[in-house]
Design a protein around this nucleic acid. Structure first.
Lengths: 154, 154
DNA sequence: GCATTTCCTACTAAATCACTTGGTAATTAG
DNA sequence: CTAATTACCAAGTGATTTAGTAGGAAATGC
């Protein structure tokens, strides 16, 4: 599992999309302004997200991006893997007994931990995150309302 | 939270240390050979681990590294943070209401998730990993025996 | 004294990050 | 039809990170 800033940008952008995409597509320009990420970098990220069918693009005026599937069917692991490209760490190629025994033992331990981290992130969906926030809607809600009217005005 | 290959090297090396350091210190040369990591890179990683007191070095012949504290008191998050240096993602500096409202809402969501990932890794200790493996000691155990006698010979 | 080992600094090729530039293709509004 | 808007695509770029080299100095055991 790899969790870099690139993955964070992707998760953040997808969260923005999930939050603001309820009525109509969201443009990358909006996400760019909302999240402070450069437009072209977003394009690169969304190119990767699109090939994994996590988002769906609509061209032309009034276009933008939709989520490719339900927010409940998109896990954090899905997003990170889409942009960050899973790298195999253990050089022995998984389960084979490589050079020394201790090496492979450590690798097995790491591999187990790595799987656990992945499963943890695979278990959290975009929908979970959004709902988790809606649960504690107090001062946060006001921000959302201000934000949507604000972004329309700008 | 940041989980790069650098952090993986560190965790792997610390695992090696926990596994092989039960009787006497382990040299970086041994870890280097076991895990296929360059000696100087290990030195850099262990310099960071040492300042966080996760390892303790002993110079001279017969020297090497001990764990800085009990394997149960060293979490995976400890190790990763030591070498990878926690980077704050949200530019708004945490909880302030930055430029737009939607931005900070997304940031809050990400921040919560990030904390959750951290807690997950903070909850797994080196000792846990080692014991977890000792539980299923079948063909793995044979490898350990071969390895320790092997590394002594080399 | 000598070999071993940690400890320390500086340097480097390669990769990655985040972004810029400069487009093309599809779609809508007028 | 034209112009504006938006996704889509490719090449390049400075800054940073990665993983490693090189060349030591300081401590310690034999």
């Amino acid at each position: 599992m790899r969790l870099s800033t690139k993955g964070r940008y992707a998760v953040t952008a997808m969260l923005d999309l999930a939050l603001n995409g309820k009525n109509g597509p969201v443009t990358l320009v909006e996400i760019s302004e909302n999240q402070g990420i450069s437009l072209s970098y977003l394009e690169q990220l969304f190119a990767a997200l699109r090939t994994k069918e996590l988002v769906r693009g609509v061209r032309g005026p009034g276009g933008g991006y939709y989520l490719g599937k339900s927010a409940d069917d998109i896990s954090i692991a899905n997003i990170i893997c889409a942009v960050d490209e899973w790298v195999e760490f253990t050089r022995c190629g998984g389960r084979q007994n490589c050079s020394g025994g201790a090496r492979c033992l450590t690798h097995t331990l790491w591999d187990d931990l790595s799987t656990e981290i992945f499963n943890f992130l695979a278990d959290i969906s975009l929908g979970d995150l959004v709902r988790r926030n809606l649960g504690k809607k107090d001062e946060e809600e006001k921000l959302t309302v201000v934000a949507s009217s604000d972004s329309q005005a700008a």
